[in-house]
Amino acid sequence: MQQALLFLFAVVAGVMLPIQAGLNSEIGKSLKSPVYATLVSFVVGTFGLLCYLLLARTQWSELKNGFQLPWYYWSGGLLGAVYVAAIIVLTPRLGVALTFGLTVAAQMVFGVIMDHYGWLGVPVSPINWPRVIGVALIIAGVVIVRFN
């Protein structure tokens, strides 16, 4: 049951991304800047998270644990900003399906590599033929979407 809820959460999050891309692209057009649109997205997201943390009465003292991590762990927010800005630039030019097809294919390729080596503390899962075939099918899907 717990795994089914996790899968459902992943699906819901996946559905939200193309919607976010469309919304953020319109903000980017209106503001005439993907960087401003990214800033707006992150400010609104930060406000939403702060509201959640206040309503959930979370323990703010847990934040201190993050300061014990190496500096490069903090770059995740910057990577997220680059990703959102890229989606804002790419979506109006390539369309939602191709933009996300390309980014998902890249995520899968790099994800399989990260899993193989266990980089950044992820569980090790060696590259094998089923994983290679799965990634190849995703890339094939991107090619079909592109040339359809």
Rank of each mutant, 00 (worst) to 15 (best):
38 T>E: 00
9 F>Y: 04
79 L>G: 14
148 N>S: 14
66 G>L: 15
107 Q>D: 01
45 G>L: 03
135 V>L: 09
6 L>C: 04
68 Q>T: 13
36 Y>N: 00
14 G>L: 02
98 L>F: 02
96 V>R: 08
14 G>T: 05
90 L>M: 15
70 P>G: 02
115 D>I: 03
54 L>R: 12
33 S>W: 05
47 F>V: 12
138 I>T: 15
122 V>S: 07
137 L>Y: 11
63 L>A: 10
107 Q>S: 04
91 T>H: 13
144 I>L: 14
64 K>Q: 06
144 I>P: 09
127 I>Q: 09
76 G>D: 13
90 L>S: 12
100 F>N: 02
107 Q>G: 03
9 F>E: 05
27 I>P: 01
119 W>L: 15
119 W>T: 11
109 V>N: 01
6 L>R: 10
120 L>I: 15
83 Y>Q: 10
99 T>S: 12
118 G>A: 05
28 G>N: 01
38 T>C: 04
63 L>E: 00
55 L>S: 11
93 R>K: 15
141 G>M: 11
5 L>K: 10
141 G>I: 12
120 L>R: 01
89 V>Y: 15
17 L>A: 08
114 M>P: 03
33 S>T: 00
54 L>W: 10
134 G>S: 14
41 S>Q: 05
134 G>I: 12
42 F>T: 01
57 R>M: 07
67 F>S: 09
24 N>D: 10
67 F>I: 11
129 W>Y: 06
120 L>N: 02
128 N>D: 08
42 F>K: 00
101 G>R: 07
115 D>N: 07
1 M>I: 01
69 L>E: 09
96 V>F: 11
79 L>Y: 13
13 A>N: 10
13 A>M: 04
2 Q>G: 05
6 L>G: 10
52 Y>S: 08
126 P>D: 02
72 Y>G: 01
76 G>V: 03
58 T>G: 04
68 Q>N: 14
76 G>A: 15
61 S>Q: 07
111 G>L: 06
71 W>H: 04
94 L>C: 05
51 C>W: 06
10 A>G: 15
63 L>P: 04
140 A>G: 12
110 F>L: 12
66 G>R: 09
106 A>N: 01
69 L>N: 09
50 L>Y: 09
2 Q>P: 01
137 L>N: 12
89 V>L: 15
116 H>Q: 10
7 F>P: 00
120 L>M: 15
47 F>P: 01
